[in-house]
Simulated assay, not measured.
Amino acid sequence: MTTTRPLSLVTGASAGIGAAFARELATQGHDLVLTARRADRLESLAQELRERHGAVVTVLPADLADPSAVSRLCDELDARGLRVDWLINNAGYGVPGTFEAVEWPVHEAFIRVLMTAPAELAWRLLPGMRERGHGRIVNVASLAGHVPGSAGHTLYAASKAYLIKFSQSLALENRHLGVHVCALCPGFTWSEFHDVTGTRQLMNKLPGFMWQSAEAVVREGCRAVERGDVVHVTGSVNRVIKALTKLLPDRLTLWLSARESKRYRALEATQ
């Protein structure tokens, strides 16, 4: 009997949680489409997955800050006859500095990558999933989307809260058709994210128990979306933080956020 291997599209697949998703899904027998800006890293990962898991891996480099990137990416999928079963909306980064200290085009690119691109990819790929009666969409949000915003990295928590609410509505609209949507909400994760934002030195002050590996986050995420969880916060420490945030008065949580953010938020832009 012949079986068709699932096909997963992973954005931001060149490092961190994105690369971990690619490796985990390849282990589970998926073929993959990998996209990110850094083609050399994608090719290296693709070769690894082909050799280790026999996966068919397609590399389609793209900069999701480009307004036409998603439509061109999906046109290429159609041209190659690739039907996406799993969409992992993972691409993201942080913009250090206070809101007014950063040029608007930088904020605009951030909004496109973290908010517009995930929504457009879902919009373009959902019809096929609905028609086939099966699909999985994981929007990589963050614990930051559940707790009060902080000074610095102004749009980051806002973008993650957006992904959570977007995922909830999308899940309700599609679960009866076999399409599961999950907002995956990790806390502090070992990756190069903080090196890129220039906050690694600040991050190193946090205790070890606050951190998870990208692999642990991804394993939880895959199980959560298969179960039909609509929002999943990874790690017991992060789930406690989320629960406490809901229980404490807003004034207190904002005060705590202001105090703690000084330890790990860069208030001066490093662009």
Results as ranks from 00 to 15, higher is better:
Trp255Cys: 02
Leu252Ser: 10
Leu244Arg: 03
Asp250Ile: 07
Ile241Asn: 00
Ala243Asp: 01
Tyr264Thr: 06
Ser261His: 03
Arg239Thr: 01
Pro249Leu: 14
Leu256Gln: 12
Asp250Cys: 04
Leu254Gly: 00
Gly235Lys: 07
Lys262Phe: 05
Thr245Arg: 01
Arg259Ala: 14
Val237Gln: 04
Val240Ser: 08
Val240Gln: 07
Tyr264Pro: 00
Leu244Gln: 04
Pro249Arg: 14
Arg239Lys: 15
Trp255Thr: 09
Tyr264Gln: 03
Leu256Asn: 08
Lys262Leu: 15
Asn238Thr: 09
Ala258Trp: 07
Gly235Asn: 10
Ala243Asn: 03
Arg251Lys: 09
Ala258Lys: 11
Glu260Ile: 11
Lys242Thr: 05
Leu252Glu: 06
Lys246Pro: 00
Glu260Gly: 11
Leu256Gly: 12
Ala243Cys: 10
Glu260Asn: 09
Asn238Ser: 11
Arg251Val: 08
Ser261Tyr: 05
Arg259Trp: 12
Ala243Pro: 00
Glu260Leu: 15
Thr245Trp: 02
Val237Ser: 02
Lys246Met: 11
Arg263Pro: 02
Val237Glu: 01
Lys242Ser: 07
Lys262Ala: 12
Lys262Ile: 05
Trp255Gln: 10
Lys246Tyr: 09
Arg263Trp: 02
Arg259Ile: 10
Leu252Trp: 14
Pro249Val: 15
Leu254Arg: 13
Arg259His: 11
Pro249Glu: 14
Leu248His: 02
Tyr264Gly: 01
Ser236Leu: 15
Lys262Thr: 13
Ser261Ala: 13
Lys262Cys: 09
Lys246Leu: 12
Arg239Trp: 02
Ser236Phe: 12
Tyr264Ala: 01
Ile241Gln: 03
Ile241Ser: 02
Lys242Leu: 06
Val240Asn: 06
Ser261Cys: 04
Pro249Asp: 14
Thr253Asn: 07
Leu244Asn: 00
Val240Gly: 09
Gly235Val: 05
Thr253Trp: 05
Leu248Trp: 06
Arg239Asn: 03
Lys242Met: 13
Leu244Ser: 09
Tyr264Val: 04
Arg251Ile: 04
Leu256Val: 13
Ser261Ile: 05
Leu252Gln: 08
Tyr264Arg: 00
Leu252Pro: 01
Leu256Met: 14
Arg239Tyr: 04
Thr253Phe: 08
Tyr264Asn: 07
Gly235Ala: 09
Leu247Glu: 04
Val237Leu: 14
Ile241Glu: 02
Leu256Ser: 08
Arg239Phe: 03
Lys262Ser: 08
Val237Pro: 02
Ala243Met: 14
